[in-house]
Structures are given as structure tokens and as C-alpha cells.
Nucleic acid binder design. Structure first.
Length: 576
DNA sequence: GCCGTTTTCGGCCCGACTGTTTTCAGTCG
């Protein structure tokens, strides 16, 4: 059985959890967590590196010891150090660390005094009133833990970013009414445009901290107050979303915004740099001894550290500090750079607007062109088009284009990739199209090799333009199908075709990491909404957020091109 | 356990809030 990076990362995470409960050196714990995070982000498989005999030392956070442990995992599938610690700390107990209010110390007490190793046994002990008798715990902790177990069971702990936008805006609106002079900014993973967020962080600059705090905990949707302090409070909404509000004075706003935007890994890296320069960074400012050297704006924080300003989307501790120090940060693509949308549907298949209506909406969204890419016959559930219907649609689009001014509708198709890698429509109709999006809509459970080969073969088709939603994942609801994405990306580079970053907020498919790999290999990415309704063109902002996280610049994105250059690039993918 | 303008040892980010405490440890972000 092949070992993938995610497996190695999972073992290191578990190791970190158990070591932490075992009260190991906290920096040793951090070393495991750091390595797990780095390895989870890598695009090259360490299993292959080990087989090839390459050196693992040099991977960020991997030294001699962890390199040996990775080799052990790859060769044996297990980690003996983990099994050793299992003799002291039972497996699965790390789950308890995820409960709010429980950290390593208390988990250890729970296990040693009451033998608690699971949510079930914790719940039972709490119901029997045993927790309140433990040192450091009381009646209140017991009640909170009982609630935490219940809420853990009945709701997922993360939210798609797009789904929390209305809650974020609603809360800020209520706070603004309480203090019209305050400034608000959403921070955290939300500001970094992460695919999912665990909670919302709202930062306020205000002289009325108390007023804001009161308004916050009394807001309409709040069902529980988790903390209510002078400058910092946390609440839980009915849907389980946690919101944190922090109020700071104007001179600290930039430092606080930087701090609460994170990520944690980025902040640690920034503070390490500050320390090396003899400075100290906290959420109130940046200091040399007692002297303030920055903090009112984010620019002042980066400036004091001799860094160019790092866009929030890149603050993941993946080398952005070094890039900023060397003046090597990319100028990230922006929404206004987008000239068109190359993946849309109409009533001909499973969309709910006509081509003319979609074209009008695309133009309204600021685009100069749009490609119609309805489904094909294999996807009967979506009323996919067969050759004859597509021929007619092509004629229809030609006719429509004759009536449009300052806007072009391109002729395309989202063609099903069949099991053997062939395309779902005959060449004579594909040849008439401006572009062909190849997508997998069936047989998600093929073995990894078979799925990868299937896709590579489809890409080799002479009329193939780009791969639609390359992994098929649905965020928080469906795992990607088993496919060797780096291999697909490398193949696209050799073949001379493109990849899609699907901007639908449920998909955001490619991931940021894979976007970054594609960019390194010089592959153009089409950022498309896959719109099925006119309002879906609004999805573009989510795609742009993801593209920025992947470090994509305007030049890396296919549909930032004006129509004439776009046509040339589409033409270029055709093999004779 | 990693790492090096602190360089093979001795550091490793920093502060607010809670609950249980009676001066602070644990947790969280």
C-alpha cells in the first residue's frame, strides 16, 4: 500500500497530540506539528522521494530524526515511536483536545483519574458529576464540556467561507449601529480567503469598547456567550458559528489587524524575524525596547521589519516572509483583471437561463466574453447535449453573436471524460468549438492509477482545452477522487493544455497548493464560475481569492486575456 | 525536535480571558 504525504502528516499530528498530553517538551511537540503541516502542503510525494533514495533533510522542519521517521513510515506503514507512546497514552484520546476548554493538561487528568479516552466516556463522567471533583475543574467546566460534546456531535465545526459572509456582514452592521464612529475589519482565515473558516474574527477600532462588547453579546443571532471581556469577547450563533470581537485603539489597529489575520504559522515567522532584529511584535504594536516603531497600519508593521507588504492570502508561513524580504512577492491577480468566463451552462442542459440571458449577466459582471459549455449526452441527468443538439447550439450562438455589441459568446462544451479517457462527443462537432472543457462526472471510485490515466488520456485528445474542476471535490461534503494531481499538472505542461480553477464556492477546485504548482510549471489557469444561473457570475470573487492564495498573477490566468489573445491561446491547444 | 547574524547549545511568539484559585494555571487564538 502506498503511503501518501497525508498519511505521514496524520501520524505526526497524532504524535504531537499524544506527546502534548504526555507533557513532553512543548517545542518538540511543535516540531511534529510544523513538520505535519509542511508535509501536508508538499506537492511531491515523500514516498517517491524515499524510494528514489533522495535526501529528506532540507524539507522545512525536517531534521535527521524526523527524516528517519518518515522513511520508517514509508517502508513499514507505521511509526514505532507512536506505538511506544500508545502504551502510556491511548490512541484516539487526541480527539478530546479538539473540544473547547480541554487542553493537554486537563485531558491527562481526565485519563489518569477517570480513565476517560473518548467523547462517550467523557459525556458519561460529566453526567454522573465526576468531573467537578477533579483538580482544576469545577461545576462550570463540567457543564461546558457536556455542551461541547453535544455540539461536537451534531454540527460540523467548519464552514465554507462563502456561507459565513452574510453572518459576517450582518454582525458588522449591528456593531456599526452601536458605535457609528468605529472602524471594522474582518480578520482571520476569512481575510486570508481560506476555503473554510472555523470562526470569524472581527477587529474594531473604537473608543467605546464597552458599548461594542455589550452590543456584540446581545446581537440577535447569539445563542451563547463564550467570553465577555473588556476588549475581547466571543459568541456562538445558532448555526454553531463562533465569532470573536476584539477592540483596539487606533495606534494599534495595524498591529492588531496583522496579528488577528494570521495565520499562526505566519505570525510565528514574523515574530521570529522581529526578535532577530531586536524588535518585539505583539497585537499592540512593534517595539524596540520601550519605543514604538510601528503598529497603526499593517504597512508600518511590515515596514519596520524591512518587508514589503504581504497580501493576506499569502500569509500561510509558506515562504512569504523570505519572498517579501527579497522583494519577490508576486503581484496577485485581482477581480478587475478578469475579462471573461470560460465555463457556463444554459437551459440547453442543466442551467436555468438562456444563452442570451447568461451573456447579458456576464457583460453586467464586467466581462467581454463568455463561453457556453453545456454538458454532454452521457450526463443524462443534466440533459446533456448530443452531437446533433450541439451542432444546432453552435449555429444559434453564431446567430446571437451577430446581434451582440462589445461582447462575444464563445462556443464550447463541458464534455464528459468517459471511463477509458475518450471524450463523450464525436470529433466533427468538437472541431467546430472554440474550446473543450473535459470533466469527470462519473466513476469517482476508480483506483488512483486508473483515474489518473483516464484523465491523462483525455488531455491528449487533439481538441482538449482545459480540465474542468480537476479533482471533483465538494468542500466539506465530498472528498476529491483519487488522482495524482501533480502528475496531471505535469502532463498539462507537456501536452500544452490548461487547467481550470472552478470558482464555485462549494468546489474551489484546484486547491491553492496545486495552483501554485501549476504556476511554477508555467501552466495557465482558467478561473471560471461554472455558472448555472445569472447570479452565479458573482462566484468569481471566490475563485480570485483561491487564485491569490495560489500566488497566481494576472499573466498566469487564461481569462485575463483580451479576446484576441485569448483566441490565440485557445487555438494553441489544438493538436494537428 | 529543529535550527543557526544566538551557529553544535540554548533558544524556540505573545497576551487575554476563564475558572478555580487566593495568586495563577490552563486554554485559546
Amino acid at each position: 500500500m502506498a503511503i501518501y504525504n497525508q498519511d505521514i502528516a496524520a501520524l505526526f499530528k497524532e504524535m504531537a497530540d499524544l506527546l502534548e498530553i504526555d507533557a513532553a517538551n512543548p517545542f518538540r511537540v511543535r516540531a511534529y506539528r510544523n513538520a505535519a503541516r509542511t508535509i501536508g502542503d508538499l506537492t511531491e510525494e515523500l514516498g517517491e522521494k524515499v524510494e528514489a533514495g533522495s535526501d529528506l533533510i532540507g524539507i522545512d522542519g525536517v531534521g535527521k530524526d524526523l527524516a528517519a521517521k518518515i522513511e520508517e513510515i514509508v517502508r513499514t506503514g507505521t511509526l514505532s515511536a507512536l506505538q511506544e507512546i500508545h502504551e502510556k497514552i491511548p490512541p484516539g484520546i487526541g480527539e478530546l483536545l479538539k473540544l473547547p476548554g480541554l487542553g493537554p493538561k486537563k485531558v491527562k487528568v481526565l485519563y489518569e483519574d477517570l480513565g476517560i479516552t473518548s467523547l462517550d466516556s467523557l459525556e458519561k463522567a460529566a453526567q454522573e458529576g465526576k468531573l467537578e471533583q477533579l483538580p482544576g475543574l469545577g461545576k462550570k467546566s463540567q457543564e461546558k464540556l457536556l455542551k461541547a460534546v453535544a455540539s461536537r456531535r451534531d454540527m460540523s465545526q467548519r464552514f465554507r467561507r462563502a456561507d459565513v459572509m452574510p453572518y459576517a456582514e450582518g454582525m458588522v452592521k449591528q456593531l456599526r449601529e452601536a458605535d457609528p464612529d468605529a472602524q471594522f475589519c474582518l480578520a482571520g482565515s476569512y481575510r486570508r480567503a481560506c476555503e473554510t473558516v472555523g470562526d470569524l474574527d472581527i477587529l474594531a477600532e473604537s473608543g467605546q469598547a464597552g458599548t461594542l462588547m455589550d452590543a456584540f453579546v446581545q446581537a440577535g443571532e447569539v445563542t451563547e456567550i463564550l467570553a465577555h471581556g473588556k476588549t475581547k469577547s466571543s459568541v456562538l450563533l445558532r448555526n454553531g458559528l463562533q465569532i470573536d470581537l476584539r477592540v483596539v485603539p487606533p495606534e494599534s489597529f495595524g498591529a492588531a489587524l496583522h496579528y488577528f489575520t494570521g495565520s499562526k504559522a505566519h505570525n510565528i515567522a514574523v515574530r521570529r524575524r522581529a526578535r532577530q532584529m531586536g524588535l518585539k511584535v505583539n497585537e499592540y504594536g512593534i517595539f524596540r525596547g520601550e519605543d514604538v516603531v510601528g503598529g497603526d497600519t499593517e504597512a508600518s508593521v511590515f515596514g519596520a521589519l524591512n518587508l514589503s507588504e504581504i497580501p493576506p492570502e499569502l500569509r500561510e508561513g509558506r515562504g512569504e516572509i523570505e519572498a517579501a524580504a527579497g522583494g519577490l512577492l508576486p503581484a496577485l491577480v485581482e477581480r478587475k483583471d478578469m475579462k471573461g468566463d470560460l465555463h457556463t451552462h444554459s437551459t440547453a442542459s442543466d442551467g436555468n437561463a438562456t444563452i442570451a440571458e447568461m451573456a447579458a449577466a456576464a457583460k453586467e459582471a464586467g466581462h467581454d466574453y463568455m463561453a457556453v459549455t453545456d454538458h454532454t449526452k452521457r450526463l443524462t441527468i443534466a440533459n446533456g447535449l448530443d452531437e446533433e443538439r450541439l451542432h444546432r447550439q453552435i449555429d444559434e450562438i453564431d446567430e446571437l453573436n451577430g446581434t451582440l455589441e462589445g461582447f462575444a459568446v464563445l462556443k464550447g462544451s463541458e464534455v464528459d471524460i468517459l471511463e477509458d479517457g475518450s471524450l463523450d462527443l464525436a470529433d466533427d462537432v468538437l472541431e467546430r468549438l472554440d474550446l473543450v472543457v473535459g470533466s469527470v462526472h462519473s466513476l469517482f471510485n476508480l483506483r488512483r492509477d486508473a483515474q489518473t490515466e483516464r484523465i491523462l488520456r483525455a488531455m491528449d485528445h487533439p481538441f482538449f482545452t482545459f480540465l474542468g474542476h480537476p479533482t471533483g471535490r465538494l468542500i466539506l461534503s465530498r472528498e476529491p477522487y483519487e488522482v495524482d494531481v501533480p502528475r496531471v499538472i505535469e502532463h498539462a505542461a507537456q501536452r500544452g493544455c490548461y487547467l481550470e480553477l472552478n470558482a464555485n464556492p462549494k468546489r474551489l477546485d484546484l486547491s491553492d497548493i496545486h495552483c501554485s504548482l501549476a504556476r511554477e510549471l508555467g501552466i495557465l489557469i482558467a478561473v471560471n464560475t461554472d455558472a448555472h444561473r445569472t447570479r452565479d457570475f458573482g462566484y468569481m470573487i471566490h475563485g480570485i481569492g483561491q487564485a491569490r492564495r495560489g500566488g497566481l498573477q494576472k499573466k498566469d490566468v487564461l481569462n485575463t486575456r483580451p479576446l484576441a489573445s485569448l483566441r490565440k491561446l485557445l487555438e494553441k491547444t489544438r493538436l494537428s
